[in-house]
Nucleic acid binder design. Structure first.
Lengths: 192, 192
DNA sequence: ACACTAAACTGAACCGGACTCACTTTATGG
DNA sequence: CCATAAAGTGAGTCCGGTTCAGTTTAGTGT
């Protein structure tokens, strides 16, 4: 029932401009960018912002959703190029960089991981699916324990995304990721 | 230079009442408790709240700081009763429960882990110290890898605290903790 | 081309919640 | 028991998200 008629041309343009403006503002570290500011960047009035997004939060959500979509396309490629556990490593590190892309975005990520809005639940499911893909491959190859789901790994990582970018943040996130991987491998050894 | 004269009796009483009221509100899940609400609970006017705390955030910070102080006294006891790696496990699980104590507090915790305010930096240092105590003991006993500091472990856990309480939250947090511990042990085996 | 209409846009006004400050009350010590 | 500095009060300010009555415009039928 996609009764949604295609948006009018200018509407579509403005909507896109708003998303772009918001993303831009977040990446620039203006996590607290005001709605008027975002609207101005997009060259529209606040009212227009609210025509397209129920609320400020909804806009942030949408920006993130796009980000997630992009990210979840990656695992398939990685599995084609690497052993399963290495593919997982690459994906996790990519996740870290993704979160590191800007302080503003990190703030947004944080709220995603923490919120229980259905929108973000979807995002989690999607991400968990992507991780499952990698974990299953690893389990099948006997490289990773088989009893941990993508959802759990995602949660374990959630925190890192929430961390504000500080001195040495990236290095630390990488180390944590390695530890997590070790933990997943250790289980495979015991279970083998 | 603790030039701070002891507070007047009523002042101290009100300050404590405010902290108690805030904690109570947070634990009750009213993460968004308004300042007026908190003030009312404490039986004072808003102005009084602001006499004692620079800002609403500052109040939240103080509540959390107390919580942390309490928590950081624990490791010493645990080490007296358990093997080092078990002591670490207990402490981490306790941390989980601590975060689970209420949705509201979880929200507060999240902002702590994420903020770079000096106040919370202190809290992190303190917590990291507590964890180091346990990690060092474990390393000395050859049970845990020696190259990971408390600070890193803390970061790894940060996310769990940020997670909102949802269906099965606790179980998942526990699993993540176990994986983390496995990762730390795995390193010890390789390094042994 | 042109008019017509529903969709989209605008921005001043509204609202709710954090925060201030001029004034009142009260603890304390001399 | 007074003096006075510390503490408390709460109506009002400020600020940012949100609304909506009025205006503009893309798309369509003629």
């Amino acid at each position: 029932m996609p009764s949604t008629r295609p948006l009018r041309a200018d509407a579509r343009r403005n909507r896109d401009a708003l998303l772009a403006a918001a993303r831009e503002a977040f990446l620039a570290g203006e996590s607290d960018a005001h709605v008027d500011e975002i609207a101005k960047r997009a060259g529209v009035a606040v009212g227009t912002l609210y025509r397209h997004f129920e609320t400020r939060e909804a806009l942030v959500e949408e920006v993130y959703r796009q980000e997630v979509d992009q990210l979840c396309a990656v695992p398939a490629q990685l599995l084609a190029q690497h052993a399963p556990d290495e593919a997982l490593r690459h994906f996790l590190l990519r996740l870290v960089d993704h979160a590191a892309v800007g302080k503003g975005m990190a703030v947004a990520l944080e709220s995603i991981m923490a919120t229980d809005s259905p929108v973000f639940e979807d995002a989690r499911v999607q991400m968990a699916g992507a991780l499952d893909e990698l974990l299953d491959a690893g389990a099948a190859a006997g490289k990773l324990r088989a009893d941990i789901g993508g959802r759990t790994v995602l949660r374990a990582l959630g925190g890192m995304c929430g961390m504000r970018i500080t001195e040495g943040w990236r290095d630390e996130a990488v180390r944590i990721t390695e530890i997590l991987l070790d933990g997943l491998r250790y289980g495979a050894v015991r279970t083998s």
